[in-house]
Design a protein around this nucleic acid. Sequence first.
RNA 1: GGCGAGGUAGCCAAGUGGUAAGGCCGAGGUUUGCAAAACCUUUAUCGCGAGUUCGAUUCUCGCCCUCGCCUCCA
Length: 473
Amino acid sequence: MATTVTLQDSMTREPREVAPIDGETYRFYCCGPTVYGVAHIGNFRTFVVQDTFRRVLECAGIATKHVRNVTDVDDKTIRESQAQGQSLRDFTTHWKDKFNNDCVSLNMLKPHIEPGAVDHIDHQIRMIEVLIEKGNAYEKEGSVYFSVKSYPDYGRLSRVADRELRLGAAQTANDSDEYDKDSLADFVLWKGRKPEDGDNYWPSPWGEGRPGWHLECSAMSLEYLGETFDMHSGGVDLMFPHHENEIAQSECCSGSTFVHHWFHITHLLVDGGKMAKSSGNFYTLVDLEEKGYTAEEMRYVFLSGHYRHHLNFTLDSLLASRQAISRLSRFEKALAERAEISEAPAYDAARQIGEAGPFQPAFKALCRDLNTPDALGKIFTAIKSIDTETLAQATAAKLYQQYHFVLAALGLKLVTKDDAAEDIPEDIKAMAEERWQARAAKEWAESDRLRDALAEVGWLVQDGKEDYTVTRK
RNA sequence: GGCGAGGUAGCCAAGUGGUAAGGCCGAGGUUUGCAAAACCUUUAUCGCGAGUUCGAUUCUCGCCCUCGCCUCCA
C-alpha cells in the first residue's frame, strides 16, 4: 500500500514527498529534551507531533528509524544538579525517567534510539578533530570554535543574511559568553574546563572540558543515521542557531549533504501568548492531572491544531477534547459490540490494517502535510454517516478495523474511566439501591431526595431502562 | 530594527476562485416520573479598503490589529 505522504520542508518551504533515501527505511532525528527539570506541554507538542508523523509514515507502509536524543550535559543541567547536590548523571537520569513517563502517558511510541550526549563525547571529539584539520574550527585557550566564515552556506535554513550583525550586537551587549571567539557569530564546539563546571569535565586533545551543545546532535545523528539521512526535526526555535550550526558542522565534517528534509513544529501558545512561568500560564502534565485532566485529552488538544500554526491552548480546549474523545469512544464501543470484538488491536497490528474505508479522507488528510485537525473533522463526518445499530456483524468488524487504523495513525487510545465503577463505597451503593427501589415503587419524592443526597456527597445517579449507574461526579 | 506566522461563528479550529469541515458551548427537539446521559436538528459570508475576475473568504496591493522568533529555549 504505497500511500504518498507529503510534508512541508522548512528548508525549501514547500511540501515534499516523504520517501526514504535508501528506499527502505525512513531515518529521522528529533532534537530531544534537555533534562534539567519537568518538560512542559509546549515541549510535548513538538514530540507528540513528531510521534504522529512517525505513526502516519508507518501506517502508510514506510518503515522508520526514529532517533531522539537527550541533552544531559549543558549549563543548565550542570548548574541545577549542583544546586541539588547530585551528580550530573543521577540528576539527569531522574528527569529523563520523568520525561519518559510522560511520553508513555501521551501514548508516544518509543524512539528506536535515545542517545545521550555524555555517552558520545568521543564521537564529538572525533568530529572536532576533523573540523580543525579541515580548517573549519580553531582552538583558543582550551576551547574550540567553529568558524562560521569557513562555511559560505551558513544561514540557508533560517535565511537571515544579516543575522550575524544583530547576533553580534546582542552578544556584545550582554557579554554572557566569556569564551574568546574570533568572530561573534562563531559558536563553541568544545568548552574548556571552568571552575563552575565542578566534576563535569572530560579529557580531550585541547585539555579538559566539555562538549558544546550544538555538536551533540551532529555527532549522534552521524553515529546512528549516517552522514546523510532523511529528516531532522525540532521546535521552530531550534532553526536558528541550533540547526544552522548543525548543518555547518556536519556538512563541513562529512563533505556531503546533512539531511534531506527539515521539519519544524510551531510553538504552542497558552491563553494567546507565550508560555512562561512568570506569566502564570506554564503547564506540565502533572499540573493538568492535578486539575483532573488526562494526558490523552492533552494529546487530543495537540492534534486539534496544525503543526505549522500556533496552537492556542486553554483549559477550555481540554474540556472540549474530553467531550470529543468521549464521542469517538462511544462510537468505538458501539462498533465493537456490533462486531462482537472485545479487544482493540495494539498499534503494530492496527497500523498494518492498511485501509481506512470510510475514514480514508481522514487518513488522506494526515498524509497531506500532517493535517491532524482536518483528519479529526473527517472522522466525525464519517462517524455521523454510520448507523452502528443497523450494521451486519461482518461489516461492523471491518469498520472496526478501519477505524482503529486511523486511530493508530493519530495515536488516540480512547481510554475512558469505566474502571471507576469498582470502587464505589458500600454505603453509596446501598443508598443508590434504596433509591432505585423507591423509584420502582414510584415514590418520586423519596427517590429524588436520595438522588440529591448522593449528589451532595459527590455521586451521580443516572437511570437506564433496566438499571442505573453510579459515577463519581 | 530584521525574519516569520496569523486575523474564519461565544471558544478552539480546517478549508476552497463559485457563496464556509469538525469539536466544544448555547438553543430547540426525541427520550425520561422529573432529571442526567444519549441521539437528532440548529447557530458564521471569512479584520478593513481597493484591484484582478463572470465570480474572492480563497489571488494582488494598501491599511489596521495580534502573536512568535532573532539570547538557553520544543
